[in-house]
Design a binder for these strands. Structure first.
Length: 109
DNA sequence: CGAATGACCAAGC
DNA sequence: GGCTTGGCCATTC
C-alpha cells in the first residue's frame, strides 16, 4: 500500500493506537505532541487513510464534535455509534465533554 | 516543482 | 454560544 507509509503518518497512527477505548483525543492534540501544533489538518488527512488497526473513531475536533466536513454523513454517524458503544456519552447537541473523556496518557503521568 | 486539497484551529465579531 | 477568516502543514496532482 502506498498510502500511510510516510514517517509522519506512521507517528500519528502510533499515537492513536495508544488511546484506550472509551477515551478520545483531538486532531490538534496529536499534532502538537508530534511537534507541529498547527498541523491538525494533516492529522485529519491521515485519519482519512487510517489502516484498520487504528482506532480513528477516537479522534475528534477541539470542540468535542465529530468532524463532518466533506465526509459521508454515514461515516460520521458510524463514528459516533462506535464511540457510544465504548461508553462515550454525547450531550444533547452531539458533543463529547473533553474535560471528561480527553486522553492525555502520552505525556508522562 | 508550483498549486491545490482537506475528518483543523485560534482569534475576532 | 455560533459564524467567518486567515494560516498551517504534509500529501497529491
Amino acid at each position: 500500500m502506498g498510502w500511510a507509509d510516510t514517517a509522519f503518518f506512521a507517528r500519528v497512527y502510533a499515537l492513536v493506537r495508544q488511546v484506550p477505548a472509551g477515551r478520545v483525543v483531538t486532531y490538534g492534540q496529536i499534532a502538537g505532541y508530534l511537534g507541529h501544533p498547527q498541523a491538525a489538518r494533516t492529522v485529519g488527512w491521515a485519519m482519512r487513510a487510517a489502516p484498520d488497526d487504528v482506532p480513528w473513531q477516537r479522534v475528534i475536533n477541539s470542540q468535542g464534535r465529530i468532524s463532518a466536513t466533506g465526509r459521508a454523513p454515514d461515516d460520521a454517524a458510524l463514528q459516533r455509534a462506535m464511540l457510544e458503544s465504548e461508553g462515550v456519552v454525547f450531550s444533547r447537541d452531539g458533543r463529547v465533554d473533553l474535560r471528561v473523556y480527553r486522553w492525555e496518557g502520552f505525556y508522562s503521568d
